[in-house]
Design a protein around this nucleic acid. Structure first.
Lengths: 183, 183
DNA sequence: CTACTATATGCATCAAAGTGCATATAATCA
DNA sequence: TGATTATATGCACTTTGATGCATATAGTAG
């Protein structure tokens, strides 16, 4: 039920092809969602069957033909209805914590490797996000940011704040592990 | 493939019944995982079929009979193998952000209501977590915390740090929304 | 006496998500 | 000429998740 509303949201902002949608997950929307092309095409098919979206077949000479999808009026209605209803809280399942639950004095180095890897990856992602923020969302640029881009910026901010907290936690756990399980 | 390793992890720490496992999700492990009893029993059945767990049927007089599950040697091997392999990064999908992507000047109040609800719920959860920390994990209690409880505490810390960051972000977004879409 | 709660386990069905496989055009690279 | 990349779409299969239904014992609350 979720991907459905992601696609409706994106198509409401701007008509797109399935291919465009998939690429969107590789860039801006990728901060908080992703889906494989197979999932996207399947869901688009279902949405079209349910008449929530319509599409125009467009022939291209240099590239394969494509279908440009947009919301139908009942699609807009469905989206509006979804917006009006409160979200229910989502639980985030965390496999890293599951792994760490297995920590003991014999596998300490394994666990710390996993933590270090995680710290490393997180720092790289953090650097990437911060660079994007500096390059595209300076105080000056923010003042002239188009309205429909503001929540994309908010998504980036979410990524930045989450990673910061995650890194702080990782370092805390690394200390905790060392103190607890060193022989 | 995930619930499988959660169950193996929990059963490796201590043999349990399906019912015990479900209750674990309602308490400590609930910080970072949950599953319905139907899912748990099905997965336990699959694990038993695959000979990764074994169980003893135990008759009780005052309560219904139960099955106490524990890891088989191949279950332990499977768990160890999983621990040795790096986790792949998980993407957290965020429906709140999807909803906010739809923000515009006509639905501003709707969006702010959603944000306020989220702030309220998060503050309640935060208070709960902080209370648990104060009550069960004071500096004094931490010094005598059994080794196998340390990562449960880490899970709580993860919850606390995540919520703090989430709250900071929510308040940031609320300001951003106000600035952008007020008429 | 009836309802409800706690303990305890499970099946069946359907919706959603993930993965592998498949196809087609056109351009570029080696 | 053959390989790879970008564009573009989709089916089939499997796994996972969610929900409803079903059953059984025993204690407690009203």
């Amino acid at each position: 039920m979720s991907l459905k509303f992601v696609l409706l949201t994106l198509l409401d902002r701007e008509p797109r092809t399935g291919y465009d949608l998939v690429r969107t997950f590789d860039t801006a929307v990728g901060y908080f969602w992703n889906a494989s092309h197979q999932q996207v095409y399947r869901e688009l098919g279902a949405l079209a069957d349910a008449r929530l979206v319509k599409f125009k077949q467009i022939e291209q000479e240099d590239k394969p033909d494509k279908k440009v999808y947009s919301l139908s009026s009942s699609g807009q209605k469905a989206l509006r209805l979804w917006l009006e209803n409160p979200l229910k809280a989502q639980k985030n399942k965390d496999l890293l914590l599951v792994k760490l639950l297995n920590a003991n004095s014999t596998n300490l180095s394994l666990m710390r490797e996993e933590l270090q890897r995680n710290i490393h990856d997180s720092e790289i992602l953090q650097a990437t996000y911060l660079e994007i923020e500096q390059r595209f969302y300076s105080a000056r640029q923010l003042r002239s940011l188009p309205d429909n881009q503001v929540m994309i910026y908010a998504a980036l901010r979410k990524g930045i704040l989450s990673i910061e907290a995650h890194l702080a936690w990782l370092k805390e756990v690394d200390k905790l592990l060392g103190k607890t399980f060193k022989k």
